[in-house]
């Protein structure tokens, strides 16, 4: 890209950035234009991606290069993909349930083992921590165990939160709130950082106020 292209590009990006930010004042045509452009360009982007990162390398190229069974079996996923698009037309839309059923089945089958092996088992194991007498490590380990158990119990809604379950739920909410607070703190910092990122772009690349 030549430097002229970069200048035009930077001004384009600057215009779009300001157009979006103008929404803070109120909804206006500039914001609307930028928003519509965003949707259109993104849709175009997806079309290009499906063409050159799915259809071409995973269907067309192998079909050209392979022979025998490996070549012709590609008709199955190609057909499933095309049938998926039957959703575009109301009359044939029900056909798209077949490929959807296939993707849902794969997702469900993989999800069962992955969530158990990849989360529940290792995370429960990591919670069963040793208590080695009266010290800080043991205390933290105890707090961790209590926190995990009471949080799980808090989300157990099959029984009313009364009696023992009521007490554990109360303890659980303490952990949950601390946790939400931590996430909120992190999120807030990130959003501010992002905003500063855009202002930084306007001040340096676009206006060259800061270098």
């Amino acid at each position: 890209m030549g430097s002229l292209g970069m200048i035009i590009g930077t001004w384009l990006a600057g215009f779009l950035t300001l157009a979006i930010l103008s929404f803070l004042y109120k909804d206006n045509p500039f914001y609307k234009l930028a928003e519509h452009l965003y949707v259109g360009v993104s849709a175009g982007y997806w079309l290009i991606y499906v063409a050159f990162f799915d259809v071409e390398p995973m269907l067309v190229t192998p079909f050209m290069e392979e022979t025998g069974v490996e070549k012709w079996i590609l008709i199955v996923p190609a057909a499933l993909g095309i049938i998926m698009l039957s959703r575009w037309f109301p009359k044939t839309a029900w056909l798209s349930r077949w490929p959807i059923a296939f993707t849902v089945g794969v997702g469900a089958g993989l999800g069962i083992t992955a969530n158990l092996q990849g989360y529940v088992v290792p995370q429960v194991q990591a919670t069963l921590l040793p208590m080695t007498g009266f010290n800080l490590v043991s205390l933290n380990n105890l707090i961790l165990v209590v926190g995990v158990v009471t949080t799980i119990l808090y989300f157990y809604f099959s029984k009313a939160h009364k009696g023992v379950l009521g007490v554990t739920a109360k303890i659980g909410i303490v952990f949950i709130m601390v946790s939400f607070g931590a996430s909120f703190g992190y999120t807030l910092m990130a959003r501010i950082s992002l905003l500063i990122g855009r202002l930084y772009f306007i001040l340096t690349d676009l206006l060259r106020v800061i270098d």
């Binding site: 529940v120 995370q123 926190g147 009471t150 949080t151 946790s179």
Partner: peptide, 15 residues
């Protein structure tokens, strides 16, 4: 400690 415990509890439930 506390935030990890809660996240883990929630995630185990979700899993």
């Amino acid at each position: 400690v506390p935030q990890l415990a809660a996240k883990r509890g929630i995630q185990i439930g979700a899993a």
